[in-house]
């Protein structure tokens, strides 16, 4: 008799729990406005982690379920993500592309499937595939860095450049912006230019080999802060951290801290959180019915030096 009562009580509790769970799931489904995908070129760099997490968080704030996909800088993996996203019934894609040309096909597939794509930070070389592209003005940012480079390094001497991924437009926009200034001073001689693929470990490796071949360089300009941090590490190991000025780009927290400590000379502050939030807001507006978006929305880059470093931190302005 006692065990019957226990069974009955257990059944009541389980039924109540099931009803509660069902109600909660149903209400969560009713609350969600659908699914948004955040596809990021790589999560092996804190800057892109901030970009992806911010996009996801803003999408969630706006009422969506959001998932981050890591392309690991591989267009094949990126294409596979798009296939899954298209099949998975996502309403929009917040996209940090891997390759300006190689990523176009994936965006076109999503567009054909009726899913809007909003590019963040990196562009694709097409103006009719993505719904909108929020892009850091890398060129202008590196013009400012180039001017500061000449001011602090001087108008003569040897320097090196560590480039990002060769297939990415940002790599060349940064390099060209920098060279549009520095190349006007013929006695500033670039003795080495190699790719560090936007990767900290590769930046370190490349810097080590540059130092062996060119021990007299006065400065190194790096296409992003991850490579700049790697280059700085190589300089510390070689005992040359005080002789070689390091310039980066991104505004990564570690780089900003090194500038504050006088160990790195400058970086260009991009605003990953601004871009990521805007992309999520554009996606929401699209889903609500808006269709008129600017194809390209440049986001300014600010020069961070020892003189103004106190204003910056946490991937933006304090």
């Amino acid at each position: 008799m006692k065990s019957n009562w226990l069974k009955l009580a257990l059944a009541v509790v389980m039924t109540a729990a099931a009803i509660l769970l069902f109600t909660q799931t149903a209400s969560a489904q009713a609350a969600s406005k659908g699914k948004i995908a955040v596809v990021v070129s790589t999560l092996n760099n804190p800057w892109f982690v901030v970009l992806g997490e911010t996009a996801k968080a803003r999408a969630v704030e706006l009422g969506y379920d959001a998932t981050i996909f890591d392309s690991q800088n591989d267009t094949a993996k990126e294409a596979a993500h798009f296939e899954n996203i298209i099949a998975g019934g996502y309403k929009a894609i917040l996209f940090n592309p891997t390759d300006a040309n190689g990523s176009i096909a994936s965006v076109e597939k999503a567009k054909a499937a009726g899913i809007p794509v909003f590019c963040i930070d990196r562009e694709i070389n097409s103006t009719n595939a993505a719904t909108s592209q929020m892009l850091s003005d890398s060129y202008s940012g590196c013009v400012k860095l180039g001017q500061y480079f000449v001011k602090t390094v001087g108008k003569e001497g040897e320097y090196a450049e560590i480039l990002g991924i060769v297939g990415d437009n940002n790599t060349w926009n940064r390099s060209k912006g920098f060279h549009s200034v520095v190349d006007r001073y013929p006695d500033l001689k670039m003795v080495a230019q190699q790719s560090g693929e936007f990767d900290r470990a590769k930046g370190l490796e490349v810097m080590e080999s540059i130092l062996q071949a060119h021990p007299n360089i006065k400065a190194v300009f790096c296409g992003n802060d991850a490579m700049a941090l790697g280059a700085y590490q190589a300089l510390v190991t070689a005992g040359k951290a005080d002789q070689v000025k390091v310039f980066g780009f991104d505004g990564a927290d570690d780089a900003v801290k090194l500038i504050a400590e006088g160990k790195m000379t400058a970086t260009g502050m991009q605003f990953p959180k601004t871009m990521a939030r805007k992309a999520a807001e554009f996606a929401d507006e699209y889903i609500q019915g808006k269709r008129d978006f600017p194809q390209k929305l440049p986001v300014p880059v600010e020069l961070v030096t020892k003189d103004n470093v106190g204003k910056y931190g946490d991937y933006g302005k304090k």
């Binding site: 300006a100 103006t127 060209k176 600017p294 390209k296």
Partner: peptide, 13 residues
């Protein structure tokens, strides 16, 4: 207008 240039490198050149 930047929107008229598919590749921003062209616009910067």
């Amino acid at each position: 207008n930047a929107n008229d240039y598919p590749n921003s490198q062209d616009f910067n050149d």
